[in-house]
């Protein structure tokens, strides 16, 4: 089976996100005072072939822990969908 995994990597709660702060400031300047917090992360799309869904789930988690996210400063979540 082929799958598409989409990994979201975001700064951990409490970790300073200077990019987010700069964007928040710009949004306020543009007239969006209702924005109270901005956090900027990354999206990583992975295409996987010839693995079961369970195996894809386990291995993508491992990829996140070993390389895609740094657990000291980042959290991650991911979704796995059947590739079209």
């Amino acid at each position: 089976m082929a799958w598409r995994a989409r990994v979201f990597v975001t700064p951990k709660e409490g970790i300073l996100d200077p990019q987010g702060k700069a964007v928040e400031h710009s949004l306020h300047t543009l007239g969006y005072p209702e924005v109270t917090d901005v956090r900027i992360g990354k999206v990583v799309d992975l295409h996987l072939a010839d693995v079961s869904r369970d195996s894809a789930q386990t291995r993508v988690r491992e990829m996140c822990e070993r390389l895609l996210a740094n657990g000291v400063i980042e959290d991650f979540t991911f979704t796995i969908d059947e590739a079209s």
Binding site: P18, Q19, N70, I73
Partner: peptide, 17 residues
């Protein structure tokens, strides 16, 4: 060295960008 776990912690973007 931080990424390798040989030093604790990590470094992120400078506060002023």
């Amino acid at each position: 060295l931080c990424e390798a776990g040989l030093l604790p912690g990590a470094r992120i973007r400078n506060r002023g960008l």
